[in-house]
Simulated assay, not measured.
Amino acid sequence: MIKFFRKIRQNLLSENKFSKYLIYAFGEIILVVIGILIALSINNQNENKKDKTKEKVYLESLYQELKQDSIYLEKTNNTLASIEKNGRYVISIIENQKKITSDTLKFLNAVRRMIASNQTLPEPIIWKELQSSGNLRLIQNRELIKALFAYYHKANACQQDYKDNAHHFILDARYFDSKLFSIEDQDDYFDNWKKDNIPSHKVLQTLLSDKEFYANAKGIVTGMIISRKVLSGLRKNLEIPLAILRNELNEK
């Protein structure tokens, strides 16, 4: 084909048909441009197809990640509810110490459960990958992008609220023994808990009478109430991107 066009050019030049040569040359340029445009169009179609495939993979991964988030948030809510319940029981015993004679071990276990757990939220692995890799551009649904940003922003706020409130009181209650007990007392305090036996009278009375511990217990309960309300809002917020993703995947 190239030899054919070259032969035409040579014939036109040899016959001094310069005007016809210019017309021919212009036509050849147009053909080249058309060829380039067709090649670019095919390449763009291939790239768009690849992007669509990647987008679907990311949408499916996001959907699975958010479904796991939903399960995890429900478990976290149950954990916070358990901490609140145990905290309320501890406070009721401290405020009415006559009850301690009925079930001392229950009180001690409630103290242990009140300070043993932390709230942690799932790590958004797929979301972080989308942002760090620049592949967020693959997600065509702008409503979904907006909903995801709103959800993860609220998740960060939820985690920060827990650290600033409930977790602060939990840590204070967890480590107050280092300020109040001797080494022997601490051995008795923890070893007997592990065996589900009752620590010495001194340790028990300290738990019941220390004002700082009482204040921390109330702080933990208050923190749990606030954190659970914030967490409830986060769970509702999560339903928005989940619903959009369901529709997107059904359509695709």
Results as ranks from 00 to 15, higher is better:
105 L>D: 11
124 P>L: 01
112 R>Q: 14
132 S>A: 08
105 L>T: 13
108 L>N: 14
114 M>Y: 03
106 K>Q: 08
107 F>V: 13
107 F>R: 11
123 E>V: 12
116 A>G: 08
120 T>M: 04
105 L>K: 12
127 W>G: 05
121 L>I: 07
130 L>S: 08
128 K>Y: 00
123 E>W: 02
132 S>K: 08
115 I>W: 00
112 R>C: 10
117 S>G: 10
106 K>E: 07
133 S>N: 12
108 L>I: 15
128 K>N: 09
116 A>H: 06
125 I>H: 03
129 E>N: 13
114 M>R: 08
127 W>M: 06
116 A>T: 09
126 I>H: 01
126 I>V: 15
118 N>L: 07
121 L>Q: 03
117 S>C: 07
126 I>T: 15
134 G>F: 01
129 E>Y: 03
120 T>L: 05
106 K>M: 06
109 N>T: 15
123 E>Y: 07
115 I>N: 04
128 K>C: 02
108 L>K: 14
112 R>H: 15
108 L>W: 10
116 A>C: 04
116 A>Y: 03
129 E>R: 10
120 T>K: 06
120 T>Y: 01
115 I>S: 04
117 S>Q: 11
126 I>Y: 00
109 N>F: 09
132 S>V: 09
105 L>C: 09
112 R>M: 11
108 L>M: 15
121 L>F: 01
133 S>D: 06
120 T>Q: 05
114 M>L: 10
121 L>V: 06
110 A>S: 15
129 E>H: 10
130 L>C: 10
110 A>W: 04
108 L>Y: 12
113 R>W: 06
111 V>A: 08
112 R>W: 08
124 P>Q: 01
118 N>F: 04
125 I>Y: 00
106 K>L: 07
